[in-house]
Every structure is written in C-alpha cells, then in structure tokens.
Nucleic acid binder design. Structure first.
Lengths: 212, 212
DNA sequence: AATTCCTTGTTCAAAAAATCACATGGCTGA
DNA sequence: TCAGCCATGTGATTTTTTGAACAAGGAATT
C-alpha cells in the first residue's frame, strides 16, 4: 500500500469511517464522482480536512474532477485494512452479546463473529445463531484453530478484566470492550472502548448548555 | 452551577464520561478518596488533563488530599446535566431498537425510553417491554404529553432522515442516531452519531499498522 | 502556632490538529 | 495543440489541545 508512514491522527481514522458511510450512501444514490467540497458538506467537515486525511494514504483524486466514489471507497477500505474479513471472538452472551450476534451488518462491514464464549453454566452448550456457546477457558485452544484475531468483550463490568486476560492469553491481536469498565492489557494490543452512553451524556450536556 | 463558561472541548466531555465510569468502579471497591494521579493512571490519561477538565466546571478537590469519590461523581454528573432522568423516544424497533429497549442500564444511567415508534404495520400495536409500538406520525402529539426530550433513531439508514424530521417536528431537543447515515436537522438541535464499527475499523487499522 | 507534606488549580510552553490559500496538473473544448 | 477551467494536493498559518512546571493552600504533626 502506498502511504507516507507519518503518524496518523486517531481523529482521521474516525473521519475515514464517516467518509465510507457517506460515500456508500452516495454510491447507492447513483453518484459516480464527488468533489471534496460536496463530500465535506455531507459529512459536516472542512474540505481541506478531507483532502488532508486522504493524503496520508495516497493520491486518490483527479485534479479538476474529484474522486470516483467506488474507487475511493475501495481505497479507504484498503487504507484502513478492512478490505478483508476479520474473525472475532465474542465473550459474554448477555443482552449486549446477543444483540451483537444478531447484528447482521457485521459481515457486510468486514467482521465475522466466529465463536461465542460465556462462563455461565446455564448458557454453555446452548446453540445460538448457529454457534455453540463455550466456556472462555477454551479460548486458548480455539483461537489458533479458528484464526480469531479480534476479541469482543460484552460481559458485565466486573468480568471484563478476566475476559481480557483470556483474550490476551489466546494471543488475540486487538480488543473491543463493550463493558463499562477499563481493562489492562499489554500495550502492543490495541483496545477500543464502546459505550453509547457517552453520546447520550454529550447530548444531555449540549441541551443543558444551550438552555442557560 | 458554578462554572466558567468558556468553550468546553468535546474531548473533555468524552473524558468526563470515562472518569464517571472509573470512579463508580472505584467507589464499588470501597475507595473514598482519590488523587488525580491515581485516577489518571486508571483512565490512561495525564493527571493535569483531569485537573484541567474538572476546572472547567469548578473546584471539586481538596489540596494535599485529592477528591472525595462520591462527591466527585455527583459533581461531574451535575456538570454534565445527568443528575436527572432524560425521557427518550425510540424510533425503529428492529434489531438495534430492540436491544436498546432491553438494555436495562438506561435508567441506571439517567435515561428512560418512554415511547417506541415504528412505521412497520406488522409491528404497530405490539406490546414491547411494557410499551406499545406506535406509528411515528403520533410523535408530535405524544412528545409534549410524555415530555420527551431526546430522540433515539434506530431505523435502517434510508429511514433515518424521515425519523429525524418527525423528531424535529415534535420539538425534540437532541438526537442520537444509531443508523449508519447522516441526518440534517436545524443547527440548534445537537446530534450524536453512534456506530461501533468505527471502533472495529480503528482496531483493524491499528493491528494492520503494527504489522509492517 | 508553625512547619512539613502533599495534591490541587493554574500558568505557560510545546505539540498537534484544523483551516486557509494557492500552486499544481489533469481534463475539455476550440 | 493550446488555452482555460477547476478541484486536488500541499505548504504556511492559526487555532486548539495537551503536557510540564509551579505557586497556592488545606491537613497532619510536632
């Protein structure tokens, strides 16, 4: 891949995800070409920002014309490393875990939950969305067999660290944590925290602020 | 509330949410007092950062001692405006919407889904988690009756804008959008987008990056 | 009451990110 | 083929955010 390996801001990655989303909707509506200016408006960002974000990874546009939508989507996906399927292990088959298993966009977006783990004896052995729920102690043996690369933690908060330990022990390469607690893992393993209440807090704050 | 009304960075709000999470876990473990230094380590941020974030809203600590955990939690919640219950309207009772309705942390965190809307005739009239699913056209009349303040969009992407229009029309004060598409609303209404695939992309990118 | 200790709140410098502004260079039409 | 057009890619500038350093000020101890 042709890219200048300067350090890439995390905010850029977040925006690239937005660009993909908007570009896919544009493509669906029949747009073949788009300028950074129009894309910028659709994403509520500055057009220079877009050009600069893309410039980290290469030159994808045509001067005087713009960007070919399909081509740009492909290029961004390549840049992010999501031009392939990532195999995931889910730990914690409660409310959140179940919802994730049922979320059919996963494959569409390049991720596949290939194994589900839970330490609850009542759940172990149950079939779920075509997958058998297994005790997390089996992670270490199953991870290499199934080529699991990303761990998804969806346990209660007090179990998250234990889940993380299992994942680390199984040589998983990255973790996304839906449990509302922080975890400690070796620093070469990237961790992302997901908690949509953050966004609700933000909304509440913005509303409150606007009031006074 | 005692606060210097400079502009408050969005990143600060995000971190405050993390502080609350960590502080509540600390409290559960019996910690009554904590220093910015220890809290910083638990949150993986800089301790000056924490003190500065808090300083936007007031002086909550005691020099030479630290912060009283329970008191700090309360203060942060007040600062964010989540020291009360926000009533929410859900539009879209599919996979995601159902998961949200079942998510019992809502009330614990200060939000309550008080009404559920969906335009699918097969769903309208169904009872769900003690709530009847109603056509979104009824939003405008129900919103003032039920005091609905925040709208939660969980429709397919191509229905998100229509849902947003209903919410705006019903004088909702803020919107959180789980659908993978952008929406346009009057600019006095704050919108937050939630898409956890953003985080999966980020993980994939970080793993890929670490490889070469 | 005075001193020591320790952590906060704040100032100031540095780093990073966003924005502006324009030169660059493909495409189109004459 | 050449001139004109127009949106990209990028260097310069501004703004924002982060981090380091320190003065201020409660609490504990003598």
């Amino acid at each position: 891949m042709n890219m200048k390996s300067e350090h890439i801001p995390k905010a850029t990655i977040g925006r690239l995800a937005v660009y993909i989303q908007v570009l896919e909707n544009l493509l669906r509506d029949g747009n073949e070409v788009i300028s950074s200016e129009r894309l910028a408006r659709a994403c509520s960002v500055n057009s220079s920002q877009i050009r600069k974000d893309l410039a980290y990874f290469g030159e994808f546009g045509v001067r005087g014309v713009g960007y070919y939508v399909q081509e740009l989507i492909t290029s961004i996906k390549q840049s992010l490393g999501i031009d392939r399927v990532w195999k995931c292990a889910l730990i914690g088959v409660g409310n959140m875990g179940t919802a994730l298993l049922r979320h059919h966009d996963f494959e569409k977006r390049g991720f596949k939950i290939c194994a589900a783990f839970d330490c609850d004896p009542d759940k172990i052995g149950l079939e779920f969305e075509g997958m058998e729920i297994v005790c997390p102690t089996h992670l270490k043996e199953q991870a290499p067999e199934l080529n699991l690369e990303i761990g998804i933690i969806a346990t209660p908060p007090d179990r998250a660290q234990r889940a993380a330990n299992h994942l680390v022990d199984a040589n998983i390469r990255g973790i996304i944590n839906f449990a509302p607690s922080r975890i400690n893992v070796p620093k070469h393993i990237p961790v992302e925290y997901v908690d949509f209440f953050d966004h609700l807090y933000s909304i509440a704050f913005q509303i409150t602020l606007g009031n006074d």
